[in-house]
């Protein structure tokens, strides 16, 4: 991909396969996901920039590292692993990941938040975008849905499908999250992988200032999870987290895996990095051009 294509506000047709790869192999994918997030949001004129940019590396590893088994051309395939975005407002990063995996046409990303789009402001299952397993957006609910899915797979259908779920860290203030985690360990769901995007930011400010949820690691451990803390922008470390999940499932540990990914909101775009003000707003045209320029060197 040449620099002009990378800097363009237009979407390109490049897609990436889902396979085991070396840590450095994720950088071009995560960067293209970030570029698409910028392209989507500047067109939409509203939406969330910070969380999607900050979690792009997690999504690159999860969707493109062979951890989730899926068929881009058939996202209804019965044997697929499922991902639930409990933090529904981070939809752009999921939409960009699915587009870059080839699940739907990349140019359709231009319709984010537009009338009749399959890319609703928060994921809407009724619009049938391939790869959207459930509607989400009211925080705390997605993780319970994911637990229900993991129960169906492990306890009823007795297969080896995996369920991944990402929550934010501010989302942990929703009490029902802990009901869900309690039940995940109660039912010994080692096929369940819970990722916390721990960027320490929410709309009103830093998470401990709005309502302290720390210590997160000890809380998750005491609720019965196997917790692994990773640097959320370090691909080798992220791989270590997802590998641990696969081992837990293969070994039948009976424990859900909790990956606490330390991230920075807005990471990859210097003027957004670690600024909670970017939680819920899109870039202006000038800011988008500047962001794409910064993201074009990779």
């Amino acid at each position: 991909m040449d620099v002009t294509t990378k800097q363009s506000l237009e979407f390109n047709a490049t897609t990436f396969p889902n396979e085991r790869r070396s840590p450095e192999g994720f950088l071009p994918i995560a960067t293209e996901i970030r570029r698409d997030i910028i392209r989507m949001l500047v067109r939409a004129g509203s939406g969330h920039s910070g969380g999607p940019l900050g979690s792009a590396d997690i999504f690159a590893v999860m969707y493109f590292g062979g951890y989730m088994r899926y068929r881009p051309e058939d996202m209804q395939w019965e044997g697929r692993d499922r991902f639930v975005l409990s933090a529904g407002h981070m939809a752009p990063v999921m939409y960009a990941s699915l587009a870059n995996a080839g699940c739907y046409p990349k140019e359709e990303q231009a319709t984010l938040r537009k009338y009749n789009t399959r890319l609703q402001g928060h994921p809407g299952r009724d619009m049938h975008l391939p790869g959207i397993e459930t509607s989400s957006g009211s925080l705390g609910q997605g993780i319970s849905i994911a637990v229900g899915m993991a129960m169906a797979d492990k306890l009823l259908d007795k297969n080896d499908r995996r369920v991944f779920c990402l929550t934010g860290d501010g989302e942990l203030q929703e009490g029902s999250v802990w009901e869900a985690v309690m039940s995940a360990s109660h039912f010994k769901l080692d096929n369940f992988c819970w990722i916390i995007d721990n960027n320490d930011c929410q709309i009103d400010g830093r998470v401990p200032d709005v309502m302290n949820v720390y210590p997160i690691v000890e809380k998750a451990q005491s609720f019965g999870c196997d917790v692994i803390v990773v640097e959320g922008h370090d691909y080798a470390d992220l791989m270590r987290g997802f590998d641990r999940f696969l081992q837990n499932q293969a070994n039948g540990t009976g424990k859900p895996t909790c990956i606490v990914a330390k991230t920075y909101m807005g990471h990859g775009v210097s003027f957004m990095n670690d600024k909670f003000e970017w939680h819920g707003k899109p870039p202006s045209k000038d800011q988008a051009v500047a962001a794409l320029e910064e993201l074009s060197s990779i």
Partner: peptide, 27 residues
């Protein structure tokens, strides 16, 4: 084998039911 005790957690139970339903069960 088809009964699951969720405890006193109606929000969780309702949403777990949604996850089961999205997996082809009738919860």
């Amino acid at each position: 084998d088809r009964f699951f005790s969720i405890g006193i957690a109606e929000q969780n139970a309702t949403t777990i039911a949604a996850g089961l339903a999205l997996s082809g069960k009738i919860p």
